[in-house]
Design a protein around this nucleic acid. Sequence first.
DNA 1: GCCAACGTTGGC
DNA 2: GCCAACGTTGGC
Length: 152
Amino acid sequence: MAFWLAKTEPDECSIDDFARAPQTPIRWDGVRNFQARNYLGQMSVGDLVFIYHSSCREIGIAGIARVSTAAYPDPSQFDPSSPYHDPKSREDKPRWQAVDLIFQQRFAELLPLDSIKSLNGLDGLPLMQRGNRLSVMPVSPEQWRILLHASS
DNA sequence: GCCAACGTTGGC
DNA sequence: GCCAACGTTGGC
């Protein structure tokens, strides 16, 4: 089993949206960065994903979701009415992928970015680098343990 | 294939 | 709302 971190703007999709319907998978779509897409493609059913709230008042890790469906072509790329539409994508040659995530856990308190930055042992996690824009990233088992421990 | 211009991300 | 960082686009 592998570990990941995925960013989201909570106005769009937050940990509360997962918690509200804990049995209902949410499609993680709209990823339009090649490196992030490649990581999506590496996700397996059962992998755990930190849900990170970005571009909002309380920035940080809000909880955990679980991969319920591995990567498949992101339907929004074919939809001209979607903000994620990509005219370069074709049904027989999709450029972008989505996964389905399902609720796992909501942290009692969000783990703020400030706290994350003060932790030791997270060197190399792209989130730690200033100016980093990667929206889906791998988390090593050790990094996962450190972050999970800091959240409680 | 270089690189300037442009658009987007995301913390502050 | 600002702006630094950085990915993408397009002219050459």
